[in-house]
Computed example of a mutant assay.
Amino acid sequence: MSTDTFTADTAAPPSAAAVRAIEEAAHRARPISLAELNERSALLARFDRSYLVPTATFLRVIDRLTRPSHHGGPFRALTIDDRRAFRYHSVYYDTPDLRSFHDHRQGRRLRFKIRERLYADSGERQFEIKLKGGRGDTVKHRSPLTGTDTPLDDAPQAFLADTLRRAYAIAPPPVLRPSLSTDYLRSTFVADGRRITCDAGLVCVDLRTGRTVRCDSGLVLVETKSAEHLTEADRLLHAHRVRPAMFTKYCGALAVLRPALPANRWRRAAHRAFTSDGAGPP
């Protein structure tokens, strides 16, 4: 499956409130390089919490966390070649009967997601496997893709088999197919051992039906990532009456794109994320 770059027809309009908000917040913050981010906050094993945040609330919370006078040091914005907002394109892979989706729906202990991620601004591609750790944390395994490699080629499939065998003592699915693509703009804020990813302009495409949904242009998709169960960012969001959302890009998008799927655990948040300002399926 080709992972085409983030293009004008899938990107959020430049004037979208959420896009403006994450770019504005990132340019106000002090910068941090990718090398320093990896040194201070790699977090390949972490707890993730998701929030659907109105842009005004997002700007208030990020302003508080990125102030130079912030206790313990401010969160800083990932900066690469003077760029502080980055285009991401991902393709998720699943079995023909959507085993990954249903395992997450049922809360199975040995569940995983498989995707190819393209960092559109640099051209870097990674094959990623996200597992659930013993503490309920998320554990990510990555292997670079080069040239015309795809996740269905021998080397990535061997990496997948080895990862699942070591982590879960199970075999990989015998058949995988591309199921969903996502495109969005991301800014990342970093402090020691903590990270906040802020996504805007999300567009999801069901690769089996061609149907598309776009995220509400006034919402920022915020994820807090840390080795802790609850961080200062979580507490600030809670103080602004923003509670964690039962939402993932993959499962939430499929809940809207395929209404016949049993997806009650995600449907409420997914309809909030995707159906405002005419963003529902065509």
Rank of each mutant, 00 (worst) to 15 (best):
R84C: 10
D81G: 06
G73P: 04
V220M: 07
L164Q: 01
V222K: 01
G252T: 09
A16G: 13
I32R: 03
R99N: 06
A18Y: 09
R195A: 11
I170H: 03
K140Y: 03
R76Q: 11
G133H: 04
F101E: 06
R99L: 13
T79F: 07
G147W: 10
L52P: 10
D206M: 09
A158P: 00
R243A: 15
P68C: 08
A17W: 01
I129D: 04
R111N: 05
A45Y: 00
P144V: 13
E232F: 02
S33E: 08
D63F: 00
A56H: 12
P144R: 12
R49M: 07
I32Q: 03
R195T: 12
T10I: 12
E124Y: 03
R111Q: 09
R108P: 00
S122F: 04
A35H: 08
A161F: 01
P156K: 01
S69P: 00
E23T: 14
P31D: 07
D97P: 00
S69G: 05
L145V: 10
P156A: 02
R20G: 15
C198L: 05
T212A: 08
I22P: 04
D4I: 04
K132H: 11
L230C: 13
R109E: 11
D63C: 02
V256A: 03
F189G: 09
R30L: 14
E228G: 04
D103Y: 04
K113Q: 05
M1K: 01
D206I: 09
V242N: 11
F101M: 07
G72D: 07
F58K: 02
N264S: 15
P178L: 02
L230S: 13
L257I: 05
P14Q: 01
R208P: 00
R87A: 14
T79K: 07
H89D: 11
P96R: 05
A279C: 14
D162N: 12
H271F: 09
R208N: 11
T66W: 02
S187D: 01
R267D: 11
R30T: 08
V205Q: 11
Y88H: 12
F189P: 08
P54A: 10
A12D: 07
R117T: 12
E36R: 13
A270S: 15
P68H: 05
